[in-house]
């Protein structure tokens, strides 16, 4: 395959990763933005979403499409509910202290991971995608007769991968609308800006925190559901996803939804391209280097404020 079609293929793979990453990192960024909690267990909510997607699709019959829809609804709700309970039982008792909640979420990470190992097992398990048609992609070349289209051998994707990209775009747009246009979003933003004054205007801040932690985990779980027909569910899959999510929110600016999206696209695309042309390890090395540079030269991230 020529370089051009090969690059396009790599960019498509990158776009799939960027989409899932944007969804997952939005949850992490939302939790940090509103609660000032660095949730180290966020990757486990992603893993739980994937594992629950496997469980739901295995349990429910009626074809892969129906089972997948059920998984996409149930897994985020269950994981979000679990996270809200974890917030009330653990984080609230620590008074949302930034340092102690880091240690607590590390503990939560291991509890969720080992509980999954004990119940689900160590095997990676696939989920059948709801649809998976192969789509050949066209390329252009300049010939004697001018521009012409052709279909290079190997330049193709699947309808499911395109669906993942589209679904992530719709979900992130919906999250943005929710935060900027809804009453609940207004309450979350007021809590983010000044929790004490939010309380002075009747906002039950601790309940808002539980809801935000649940929504953040639900977004991670949804990302897990979307990726599992491509990657398979495994109890250790949260680690890499957490690392990439932290890279994205640090580069984008902690708590900035817009920055998170831009950084997810940058990291996802570069990861996809570098992985295809060189190696996935080099992609991770360069992403980590990018974080180091951002922390040195622009600690607040590309879109972050100076902090409160």
């Amino acid at each position: 395959m020529d370089f051009g079609p090969y690059l396009m293929l790599a960019m498509l793979e990158g776009a799939v990763l960027a989409s899932v990453l944007a969804l997952m990192a939005s949850g992490l960024s939302l939790v940090f933005g509103v609660m000032r909690v660095v949730n180290v267990a966020h990757g486990e909510f992603y893993m739980l979403g994937a594992v629950m997607a496997w469980a739901v699709t295995s349990f429910i019959g009626g074809g892969p499409a129906l089972a997948f829809i059920a998984a996409a609804i149930l897994a985020p709700l269950l994981v979000g509910g679990l996270a809200a309970v974890a917030d009330m039982v653990i984080l609230k008792r620590l008074n949302y202290d930034p340092e102690r909640t880091i240690v607590a979420t590390i503990g939560l990470l291991y509890i969720l991971q080992q509980a999954t190992l004990m119940t689900y097992g160590a095997d990676a398990r696939p989920v059948v995608p709801p649809f998976n048609h192969r789509i050949a992609l066209p390329w252009v070349e300049w010939g004697e007769g001018g521009l012409s289209f052709y279909f290079p051998w190997g330049l193709s994707t699947t309808s499911y991968k395109l669906f993942v990209i589209g679904a992530a775009v719709v979900l992130i747009a919906a999250l943005r609308l929710f935060m900027t246009r809804s009453k609940a979003g207004l309450i979350m933003r007021a809590t983010q800006l000044d929790g004490e004054m939010a309380t002075a205007f009747g906002i039950p801040v601790e309940r808002v925190y539980a809801a935000v932690f649940g929504v953040g985990a639900g977004l991670a779980a949804l990302a897990g559901v979307l990726i599992v027909p491509i990657q398979q569910a495994h109890y250790l899959m949260g680690g890499d996803a957490l690392l990439l999510s932290f890279i994205v929110v640090i580069i984008g600016g902690l708590g900035s939804l817009a920055g998170t999206i831009v950084a997810a696209v940058l990291i996802g695309m570069s990861d996809g391209i570098i992985s295809v042309f060189f190696s996935p390890t080099l992609a991770k090395i360069l992403a980590t280097l990018a974080v180091a540079l951002v922390l040195v030269f622009r600690p607040q991230g590309l879109f972050g404020g100076k902090g409160r």
Binding site: L186, I187, R189, A190, L193, D194, M197, F201
Partner: peptide, 19 residues
């Protein structure tokens, strides 16, 4: 101590929501 990143209308809305 206004909610600085919210608009004037949204700040008033927060007050209106309380009661």
């Amino acid at each position: 101590r206004l909610f600085g990143e919210l608009t004037v209308a949204q700040n008033i809305e927060i007050g209106l929501m309380t009661r």
